[in-house]
């Protein structure tokens, strides 16, 4: 499902080139639940951006379900993000001025889904994450855990192959964080591929496999049997 071969990423900071990823090889299968761990500055965010098609590698190959992402135009990347990837962010990243249901509708809007179907699907998704009664609330009227549930509903909108979560519990208290982890596990059991980037060991431990990244390189892997 996800294949990275010899991926390097170099940024230009002023005149100095700064290499963040130093030859990453990574393979994630369909239906896996993988966590990526590493200290800050290790390059895990950059890796997430590349996997999430927000950025492309400087050197190396990235294939998502067989599509060579490195060669795609900005427009094709946008379509890929829209259809194949659902993002869950640390700070939820809901649009603050529109209601929960309209937030969930956004990926459907960009996919060209009609008004009535969009609304029906968004309400259905909110019900699935237990937020049916909060559909008409603005994000400001929701708690952190509720916001993250709405964000997960939005990530699922176009039935993407991959859920990509960047520190999904980072802004939540322990109990709510645990609920979100359970929600992600449920999605995994339903057959979805999930990649979580975190520096929290309890979150990482929820995954079947944990990849440790240090200084832009994969140092080791840990596979759990359940």
């Amino acid at each position: 499902m996800i294949e990275l071969h010899g991926v390097y990423k170099t940024y230009r900071v002023g005149d100095e080139p700064l290499t963040v990823l130093h030859g990453v090889d990574l393979r994630i299968e369909e239906g896996e639940f993988v966590s990526i761990m590493g200290p800050s500055g290790s390059g895990k965010s950059t890796l997430m951006h590349i996997i999430g098609c927000l950025d492309t590698p400087s050197v190396g190959e990235y294939r998502l379900r067989g599509t060579l992402v490195s060669n795609l135009s900005a427009r094709e990347l946008a379509v890929l993000r829209n259809r194949m990837i659902g993002f869950v962010f640390q700070n939820f990243h809901l649009l603050p001025r529109i209601t929960a249901v309209r937030n969930v509708e956004l990926p459907l809007l960009y996919a060209g889904v009609g008004r009535a179907e969009r609304r029906a699907r968004a309400l259905d998704l909110l019900a699935r994450v237990g937020m049916a009664d909060r559909a008409q609330h603005l994000p400001t009227a929701l708690s952190g855990g509720q916001k993250q549930r709405v964000a997960i509903a939005r990530a699922l909108a176009n039935d993407p192959a991959l859920i990509l979560a960047d520190e999904p519990t980072g802004a939540l208290d322990q109990r709510t964080g645990l609920e979100i982890i359970h929600l992600l596990r449920d999605l995994h059991h339903a057959g979805r591929t999930i990649v979580v980037i975190t520096h929290d060991p309890t979150v990482a431990a929820a995954a079947d496999r944990t990849i440790y990244i240090v200084d832009g390189q994969i140092r080791r892997e840990e596979v759990r049997r359940r």
């Binding site: 999430g52 927000l54 946008a78 996919a111």
Partner: peptide
């Protein structure tokens, strides 16, 4: 700016 970033991550093209 952040709203625009969110919209782009959700699949909005430059044209949109």
């Amino acid at each position: 700016t952040q709203e625009i970033g969110i919209r782009i991550s959700l699949g909005a093209t430059r044209t949109v």
